[in-house]
Simulated scan of single mutants.
Amino acid sequence: MIDVHYWPTPNGKKVTILLEELGLPYRIVPVNIGRGDQFTDDYLKISPNNRMPAIVDHEPADGGPPLSVFESGAIMLYLAEKAGRFLPTDVRGKYEVIQWVIWQMANQGPKFGERGHFSRVAPEHGDQSYAQRRFNDETHRIYGVLNNRLYDRRYIAGDDYTIADMISYPWTAGWKAQGIDLGEFKYFKRWFEELSERPALKRGMEASVGEVEDPASVSPEEQERRRKLLYNQRARPAPVA
Rank of each mutant, 00 (worst) to 15 (best):
S168C: 10
V97S: 05
H58S: 01
V69G: 03
I102Y: 03
N49C: 14
G64N: 05
F70A: 10
P123G: 11
Y151W: 13
H140M: 11
I55K: 00
F86Y: 06
D165L: 02
G63L: 01
Q132H: 05
Y155C: 06
I102L: 07
G144H: 03
L87R: 02
R92G: 13
L87W: 05
P48T: 10
R51G: 15
L67G: 05
Y130S: 08
F118N: 05
D137W: 07
Y161P: 11
G63T: 11
Q128Y: 06
S129T: 12
M76Y: 13
A80T: 02
V56M: 04
M76R: 11
P60V: 08
E96H: 07
L87V: 10
A157I: 12
Y143G: 00
M105H: 12
Q99T: 11
E81Y: 01
V121E: 01
E71T: 07
D160H: 13
A122M: 06
L150E: 12
V97A: 02
D90E: 10
P110D: 02
E114F: 14
F135Y: 10
G116P: 11
I163P: 00
M105N: 04
D62I: 00
M52D: 09
V69Y: 00
S168F: 05
M76C: 14
G158P: 11
S72Q: 02
R120I: 12
V56D: 04
R154A: 13
W100S: 03
M166Q: 02
R92N: 14
G126H: 08
S129Y: 07
K111W: 10
H125N: 15
T89R: 15
N148G: 14
R149Y: 12
R115N: 15
R120Q: 14
I142L: 15
T139S: 10
I75T: 04
R85K: 15
G158L: 08
N107F: 15
G63R: 07
Y95S: 13
G126R: 07
R154H: 15
N148L: 07
G113T: 07
H140W: 13
Y78D: 00
P48S: 12
F118Q: 08
N136I: 05
A74R: 01
R153C: 10
D152Y: 14
L77P: 00
A61Q: 09
W100C: 08
E59D: 13
N136M: 07
A61D: 01
D159T: 09
G144W: 08
K94T: 09
T89W: 08
R51M: 15
M52P: 12
Y161I: 08
Y161L: 14
S168L: 02
I102M: 05
H125T: 11
Q132K: 08
Y130W: 04
A54E: 10
Q108G: 01
N136K: 13
Q104D: 11
R133T: 15
R134N: 03
P110W: 06
Q104G: 03
Q99K: 14
R120V: 08
Q99L: 02
V121C: 04
S68D: 13
A106Y: 03
K82D: 00
F86I: 04
N148P: 01
V56F: 02
F135P: 04
Q99V: 06
G63Q: 06
N107D: 13
I142H: 07
P66G: 04
P110N: 03
I167H: 03
V145W: 07
G109D: 10
L79S: 05
A106T: 08
E114H: 12
S119I: 13
R153G: 08
W100E: 02
I102R: 01
W103A: 09
D160I: 12
N136T: 14
